[in-house]
């Protein structure tokens, strides 16, 4: 057993999520902690109400523009190492409510997301799969070199600017260092 493996074994098997449910996906998140799909078996024994004590923020539900400053603030208050699972279609990209004027088209516009979990809502088994993928991701992180986790990098950013609620929209509409609209290669039409 190398030091890397032991270090990551401790980290990945005790990921404590933040009590953070926004909308319908939150109910499936709660259901996944209940007796049938018990998520505590995987190390997420307690959902901490305080961001200081939590490792994982499961953004479950639609992110509205009114709520975004609070979410980014909470993310900033979490202590490193911290991870984000974007649970459900709404947190990934706006979901069914994508046309809405008050809906943010995905929380990854402002904070870095580690695992995207599609579904509307994803079943509790899917959430457990996402948690297990996160645990695998954590267990695979090396301690040195380029791929090392953010909390071991001296220049790793752990706090992100909070958008300001302007007159029509959030300012800025996204954090350009984290998210850019994907360049989709389109066939050239004559």
């Amino acid at each position: 057993m190398s030091l890397n493996e032991i270090y990551n074994w401790g980290r990945s098997n005790s990921v404590w999520p933040l009590q953070f449910g926004l909308a319908c996906c939150a109910i499936e998140m709660i259901a996944s902690t209940m007796a049938r799909y018990d998520m505590a078996r995987f190390g997420s024994e307690v959902f901490r109400p305080s961001p200081r004590q939590a490792d994982l923020m499961i953004v479950s539900g639609t992110v509205t523009k009114k709520m975004v400053p609070q979410i980014v603030r909470l993310y900033n208050q979490m202590a490193e190492p911290k991870y984000v699972i974007a649970m459900g279609a709404c947190a990934i990209s706006g979901g069914p409510f994508k046309q809405g004027y008050n809906v943010l088209k995905g929380i990854d516009r402002y904070i870095p997301v580690d695992i995207h979990l599609p579904g509307c809502p994803p079943k509790p088994e899917a959430l457990i799969h996402a948690l297990m993928s996160l645990q695998k991701m954590i267990a695979d992180q090396p301690l040195t070199g380029e791929g090392r986790p953010r909390h071991l990098k001296p220049e790793g950013a752990s706090e992100f600017p909070i958008p300001h609620q302007g007159e029509q929209d959030l300012e800025p509409p996204c954090n350009p260092h984290i998210w850019r609209p994907p360049a989709i290669p389109r066939p050239v039409t004559a």
Binding site: Y101, K105, Q168, D169, P173, C174, P181, P182, I184
Partner: peptide, 9 residues
């Protein structure tokens, strides 16, 4: 009402 232009792609 004209919604804000945040549909980048």
């Amino acid at each position: 009402y004209v919604p804000p232009d945040d549909y980048e792609y």
